[in-house]
């Protein structure tokens, strides 16, 4: 088992290296650089003529004149050794300062969404499979297709409307006003949880619908297995048969697609965040691209992709625990 974990860990490091190279290439892709943007911003409308030499001076000052590979290694070196993601030009401070809290809030949204997704989809999927062709099964199926079909932002708007008009609570943002700048406390944490519910439900909606169908289908397959009949033939109580045999295997596909879900959430988050006014990374990412603020964009992309790679690593380990065939055949 330890050998399996070490193997997967090394694999993850290699993946992260390639991902970081790709992120850097993406950072380089937009035409122009921040030096030009800076010159434009600083001197436009002032009547000063900016020459190519002036732009080059800014470029040297910002360190953007060096060749790409050199900039890549100094960027990575800063991240690995000092946790320094470089300067955020547009904000005139460091990337760490800009991203800081938003990163944690994004992760909070991610994990609360995943928890909602699995808490809802796994038990309901199992229930629907066991009670196949019942009214409950059919209505859940209809609901989950609705979940797959309904766009997130629309659902966000609906929930926003309901919570403001019916429940009379504020949903914008992640904190109530009195906690916005306050230091962390239990009350602030509870306040955060309250605000996380709506975004988590919105983001979990389609993922839940998808995973519910996956769990139901796998569970149906597993229920027909001879091992289930054999367990019943041993006189095992029905609930124990269901949980120990088919249900345990039915969650495998869910566990193995945790990183897909994370990916989906990251891509849907900016639009939902825009509607709900959440201070998260996606919105910042778009803004930094518009500003050509490359280190901010790079840091965000790197964070999100690393997170997905890391979740993949975790789901590999979890799968190996769930299914002994994986570690014994791979190791």
């Amino acid at each position: 088992m330890i050998r399996f974990i070490v193997q997967r860990f090394l694999g993850m490091l290699v993946t992260m290296f390639f991902v970081s190279v790709m992120v850097f290439i993406i950072m380089e892709l937009p035409p122009g650089d921040y030096a030009e943007r800076y010159a434009f911003r600083k001197f436009s409308g002032t009547g000063v003529t900016v020459t190519e030499a002036d732009v080059n001076n800014i470029r040297v000052k910002l360190g953007l004149d060096r060749p790409a590979y050199e900039r890549y290694f100094s960027w990575i070196w800063g991240i690995v050794t000092k946790g320094d993601f470089g300067p955020a030009f547009a904000f005139e401070t460091s990337v760490n300062n800009v991203i800081g809290q938003r990163l944690w809030l994004t992760l909070a949204i991610l994990f609360s969404t995943l928890i909602v997704t699995y808490l809802v989809s796994i038990p309901i999927g199992i229930y629907a499979a066991v009670h196949r062709h019942s009214i409950a099964d059919y209505s859940l199926t209809v609901l989950s297709y609705l979940g797959l079909a309904l766009p997130n932002f629309l659902l966000a708007l609906i929930l926003l409307y309901i919570s403001v008009t019916v429940l009379d609570s504020s949903v914008g943002g992640l904190f109530s006003q009195e906690f916005e700048g306050a230091p962390w406390s239990w009350a602030k944490f509870v306040d955060l949880l309250k605000h996380l519910i709506v975004p988590a439900v919105v983001l979990a909606w389609s993922a839940t619908a998808f995973q519910l169908q996956t769990v139901r289908a796998t569970m149906l397959d597993e229920l027909n297995k001879l091992s289930v009949t054999a367990a019943r033939a041993r006189g095992i109580p029905e609930w124990k048969v269901l949980l120990k045999y088919p249900a345990r295997l039915a969650i495998n596909p869910v566990v193995s697609t945790v990183s897909f879900d994370a990916n989906r959430i990251f891509s849907e988050l900016p639009i939902v965040a825009l509607v709900l006014g959440l201070p998260e990374l996606g919105e910042l990412l778009i803004k930094s691209y518009i500003d050509l603020d490359m280190f901010v964009a790079g840091a965000i992309l790197l964070m999100l992709t690393f997170m997905i790679v890391f979740m993949n690593f975790l789901s590999d380990i979890a799968l190996a625990f769930l299914d002994p065939r994986i570690k014994l055949e791979g190791g």
């Binding site: 001879l226 299914d323 002994p324 065939r325």
Partner: peptide
């Protein structure tokens, strides 16, 4: 049963 492999749960 006929299929011992399927009778046992693989996990």
């Amino acid at each position: 049963f006929q299929e011992p492999m399927a009778t046992f749960s693989p996990v």
